[in-house]
């Protein structure tokens, strides 16, 4: 009844948002902070969101469970962390040699991607919205030169997810280690290489102090798409206007996080190369070619693992093929036209 609606409209909501990033983490960690600020302003304080960094309320990898259980109403994370719960979720974060941020946004919002993503989370009582992107990442920090496929054999590298599985099929010893040990392990030689994010975050992490070569491109993560997840029951309790405010604010940070990365990454890269004398290296073509082959296998296996996985893969693949064709004569052709010399770092 309208009376109930009125009562509901006057109610104030205080929500918790758990994230998988350290509090104030540059780039992706700014997304949830901005979300909280926007929502509070737009709702005139009727919906306030307290943002928790990883480990503050729950550990970073417990974000999904916490939102699913209703311990927190909101979460900010990336879907590949939930592989153990729903392997199909990996399609929505980063697919090796898959779509970049611009293409992912198109697929998710206009190509049926969001519907499929929500279908994956449905059994958990969780709603999802895409909430930011890293853009194309870097290939990683290496203390060994990679001049051919043979150089990968026995390389000790930290690389989680689908990319790591591809690398392990190329002879790399994939090592699992806590974030806190990455820097010292790379510095000491316990691992030869690690992937991280991109120049902006890598510079802050100080990886240039621990490694000699900075390889590109990040074929394993042509972008990572971040997610805002919402507990369904909590969302249902919000009046329609607050729901609209929340959705709009998430859409805002989705763009904002990527914009920030695009702006900051090139400044940081300049600092890395000019001030810290980091040696930029391009991953050799034959390595890329083999990685591409193995990626297809790994992704096909993931697709075959369930009926839903197959549908997601079909949708993803179809969209990527189409957009690739168009982008070949638009984005790619334009990049070539704008800068015919292309990559001059070799």
């Amino acid at each position: 009844s309208s009376f109930d609606n009125q009562a509901q409209a006057q109610e104030n909501f205080r929500w918790k948002m758990v994230t998988s990033w350290p509090k104030n983490f540059p780039g992706v960690g700014q997304g949830p902070e901005r979300l909280a600020q926007l929502v509070e302003e737009m709702s005139d304080g009727r919906l306030t969101i307290e943002v928790f960094g990883a480990g503050q309320l729950v550990p970073g990898f417990e974000v999904f469970d916490a939102v699913s259980d209703g311990t927190a109403e909101l979460g900010h994370s990336a879907s590949y962390y939930w592989k153990g719960k729903a392997p199909e979720a990996q399609f929505f974060a980063a697919v090796p040699f898959g779509m970049n941020a611009q293409e992912m946004n198109a697929w998710l919002h206009f190509g049926g991607g969001m519907e499929l993503w929500n279908e994956v989370y449905e059994p958990f009582g969780v709603d999802v919205m895409v909430a930011g992107a890293s853009g194309v990442q870097m290939g990683g920090w290496y203390n060994k030169e990679i001049n051919s496929i043979e150089d990968l054999d026995g390389l000790k590298m930290r690389m989680p997810g689908l990319g790591g599985e591809v690398m392990s099929r190329m002879g790399v010893a994939i090592v699992n280690m806590p974030g806190g040990e990455i820097f010292t392990s790379l510095q000491s030689g316990a691992i030869d290489a690690t992937e991280w994010i991109g120049p902006y975050n890598d510079l802050a992490f100080g990886l240039h102090q621990a490694a000699d070569y900075y390889y590109y491109p990040g074929w394993h993560e042509p972008t990572v798409m971040f997610e805002t997840i919402v507990n369904e029951e909590a969302l249902a309790e919000l009046p329609a206007d607050l729901q609209a405010i929340l959705t709009t604010a998430v859409r805002d940070i989705n763009a904002n996080v990527l914009d920030e990365y695009t702006a900051r990454n090139n400044d940081a890269l300049e600092t890395l190369v000019n001030e810290h004398e980091v040696e930029l290296r391009r991953i050799p073509d034959d390595v890329l070619a083999q990685a591409r082959e193995h990626s297809e296998d790994v992704i096909a296996e993931l697709a075959e693992s369930s009926e839903l996985g197959t549908r997601i893969y079909d949708s993803y693949r179809t969209f990527q093929d189409k957009v690739e064709n168009y982008h070949a004569i638009s984005e790619q052709a334009y990049y070539n036209a704008r800068n015919p010399d292309g990559d001059t770092t070799q």
Partner: peptide
């Protein structure tokens, strides 16, 4: 959901 590891292998 018979939750499995979040890492390959």
């Amino acid at each position: 959901i018979m939750e499995t590891s979040s890492d390959y292998g």
